[in-house]
């Protein structure tokens, strides 16, 4: 009886799991909103990336390591972090089309106060958000996994 209870209860209690199931997706969507609207409202790649990382960390704390790693595994995290960095560098190198490195090379910047404006800045925001979110999440994975490995020994 005790053993079967123990097997079910990985992570925190039932109540925390239910609330996490309701709020984690909302927090993730809020992070994506802040990233995409970074050039017309407060926020941007750094704040949005931190919020996205926090939603994954919440899932990991509430449900335990395995379920969180099923959503975003270590190998996928390593690939995504490289993708974020390379995306930034690629957009920066595309600036040679307009003259030099890291230039905002779009000819027309679009109408202000709309989502599709400001040239390359939204793409930079997305790259930075991927980089920050996956970087902090992988730091957290590494800090948690070692504790688990030490317990098993």
């Amino acid at each position: 009886m005790v053993d079967s209870n123990k097997k079910e209860e990985i992570g925190m209690s039932f109540m925390v799991k239910t609330v996490t199931r309701l709020t984690a997706v909302v927090i993730l969507l809020f992070g994506i909103y802040i990233v995409l609207h970074g050039h017309i409202s407060p926020g941007g790649g750094f704040a949005g990336g931190l919020i996205i990382a926090l939603s994954f960390v919440q899932v990991m704390i509430a449900f335990g390591k395995d379920i969180a790693l099923r959503k975003l595994s270590e190998a996928k995290a390593a690939v995504l972090e490289s993708v974020g960095g390379l995306l930034f560098l690629t957009i920066a190198a595309l600036g040679f089309l307009g003259g030099h490195f890291l230039i905002n090379f779009f000819a027309s910047k679009g109408r202000p106060f709309t989502l599709f404006s400001a040239g390359t800045i939204p793409f930079y925001n997305i790259a930075i958000a991927i980089k920050v979110a996956v970087g902090l999440f992988s730091i957290f994975i590494v800090l948690v996994i070692l504790k688990r490995a030490k317990k098993e020994e």
Binding site: H39, I40, P42, G44, G110, P112, A118, G119, T120, I121
Partner: peptide, 16 residues
């Protein structure tokens, strides 16, 4: 730059 948030325009354009 076309961005209305000046911090974003500094962080990702002038001082990228």
């Amino acid at each position: 730059t076309g961005a209305t948030n000046f911090i974003t325009s500094v962080i990702l354009d002038f001082r990228a």
